[in-house]
Structures are given as structure tokens and as C-alpha cells.
């Protein structure tokens, strides 16, 4: 099973942030790599506990989305910058 990229969570991102985010810039809090969100590595399987977005350069976790009951929770602590 291979990872997909930030394009695949475009709908989720728009739902959470209220705007298109795949073209937004991001900076990895661990290694400083700068990429558009569409180019990040996304582990988002149909039956997974959550969606994990990682830096393709260092595999560091940048964002985690978890659906808890009817609420989508998002953790962005792995990012140094977004937007």
C-alpha cells in the first residue's frame, strides 16, 4: 500500500480550514523542507483510525486528522508554517 499526496485530502482540508489548501505552502517543523500541501505524503486509508500527513523528506508527522464521533480534530504541531 503506497501513500498518496495532499491532493487526496483536498476535500478534508477545505472542510477543516474553510478554503482550498492543496496549493498552500507548508514548512516541516523538523527538517525545514518547504512544499505545497499537495506534495506532502498522506497516509489516509479507508479504514484507518486517522489521516496522517508526513514530510516526504524526513517522514516527520506534520498533520493528523481524526474523526471523533462527529467532529474532525486536527493536530498541526508538526508544521513550522502553513499557508
Amino acid at each position: 500500500m503506497e501513500a498518496v499526496d495532499g491532493n487526496a485530502i483536498g476535500g478534508l482540508l477545505q472542510e477543516v480550514f474553510g478554503t482550498e489548501m492543496t496549493a498552500a505552502g507548508s514548512v516541516c517543523g523538523n527538517c525545514g523542507a518547504a512544499r505545497q500541501v499537495a506534495e506532502l505524503a498522506v497516509y489516509a486509508y479507508a479504514h484507518a483510525p486517522g489521516t496522517v500527513v508526513r514530510c516526504p523528506s524526513c517522514d516527520s508527522v506534520l498533520m493528523v486528522f481524526v474523526k471523533i464521533h462527529d467532529r474532525t480534530c486536527v493536530d498541526l504541531l508538526g508544521l513550522a508554517a502553513l499557508g
Binding site: 495532499g6 491532493n7 483536498g10 477545505q14 489548501m21 505545497q36 500541501v37
Partner: peptide, 9 residues
């Protein structure tokens, strides 16, 4: 469905 989605590709 929901869309359209995407601004990069």
C-alpha cells in the same frame, strides 16, 4: 458528492 476540489493540480 462534494466538489469541485483542488487548486494545485
Amino acid at each position: 458528492l462534494r466538489g469541485p476540489i483542488g487548486g494545485y493540480f
